[in-house]
């Protein structure tokens, strides 16, 4: 077991290296020039060249990559070209909104998605089942920003129940914090709820047809206990898998959701940085996102052994 964990952790290193190299070369090849953005309209061509040089952007690729990697290994993600602030500081500033959004979305998706899937499975073929599955397909098919604007229009502007924009840090009270995140997490959660509901339903159906469930039924165990005790526990494995796979989806969705709801999180930080070619920030955030993805999937793999003792390494 322990050796498996170590092997898995070691295996993430080449993956992260590939991510780093890939992102770095992408940005190296990208045509935009942060120096031109900084210099503004009044600057001459020579001014831009001097700013480039002072930013170290005129050095060869390998030199820049090597020096960046060296610093990253020492926990230094560099300094933002524009703000002149450490990238780690900027990430720390914008991590709370994104992290809160993702956690709340995840909770919401599980709390709504799993029961929907269980009900659909228990009433397989009924109108409840059909409508849950139809809703799930709708959830897949509507872009997150469309759902976001619809929700903001309905609950923010028409009904005036919830704020349409912004993020309130948890330090200013839990309720304002929660209020600011409800609409974004519902918008972002829609596709996730759909995914989890479908997976839960499918696994439940499979488990319900297993011998031991039939044995339990034959022994006179109540239908409700069968659903909750036997089936749901076994359905946990695929649900956890989906959570792992979905983290990538969630991160991508967060980028768009933060734009729609003006949340100053990592997604906005990244898109702003891409538009301005703030290389150190882009590299730092993408590295962080990738690391999150890799770690979450590592944890998911380890959780398998908790939920399903048959799986051994």
């Amino acid at each position: 077991m322990l050796s498996y964990v170590i092997r898995r952790i070691l295996a993430t290193i080449p993956v992260m290296l590939i991510v780093a190299l890939f992102v770095f070369s992408l940005l190296y090849l990208a045509p935009g020039d942060p120096a031109a953005v900084i210099a503004g309209d009044q600057a001459s061509v020579a001014d831009i060249a001097r700013i480039r040089a002072s930013l170290g952007l005129d050095r060869p690729f390998l030199v820049r990559f090597g020096s960046w990697l060296w610093h990253v290994l020492h926990g230094d993600l560099g300094t933002s070209i524009f703000t002149n602030l450490p990238v780690t500081h900027m990430i720390a500033q914008s991590i709370q909104p994104t992290f809160s959004l993702m956690v709340l979305t995840l909770i919401l998706s599980v709390v709504v998605g799993v029961p929907l899937g269980v009900i659909a499975a228990a009433r397989q073929g009924s109108w409840i089942d059909r409508s849950v599955m139809l809703m799930a397909v709708f959830g897949f098919s509507t872009p997150v920003f469309v759902i976001g604007y619809l929700l903001a229009y309905l609950f923010g502007l028409e009904l005036n129940w919830l704020p349409v924009q912004g993020f309130t840090p948890i330090t200013q009270g839990f309720w304002p914090f929660l209020r600011s995140l409800i609409l974004p997490s519902v918008a972002l959660g829609m596709i996730y709820i759909a995914l989890i509901a479908r997976i839960t339903r499918a696994t439940m159906l499979e488990v319900l047809s297993q011998d031991y469930v039939r044995t339990a039924r034959a022994k006179g165990v109540g239908e409700r206990s069968i659903l909750l005790l036997h089936a749901l526990k076994n359905a946990a494995v695929p649900v956890v898998t989906v959570i792992g796979l979905g983290v990538g989806l969630l991160i991508g969705g967060a980028v768009v959701t933060e734009t729609v709801f003006a949340i100053p999180g990592l997604g906005r930080l990244t898109t702003d940085a891409i538009l301005r070619r703030d290389y150190p920030v882009i590299q730092g955030v993408v590295l962080l996102f990738s690391l999150t993805y890799v770690l979450v999937n590592l944890i998911v793999d380890l959780l398998y052994t908790v939920f399903d003792p048959r799986i051994r390494y």
């Binding site: 080449p14 993956v15 590939i18 890939f22 990208a30 990538g248 980028v255 990244t270 898109t271 996102f289």
Partner: peptide
């Protein structure tokens, strides 16, 4: 497979945005 893992680890939307910037 390592390269594929690496690609999968970058959120798809961000990867596409970066590619479009290129």
């Amino acid at each position: 497979m390592r390269v594929m893992d690496g690609l999968m680890a970058i959120p798809g939307i961000l990867l596409a945005i970066a590619l479009m910037a290129l």
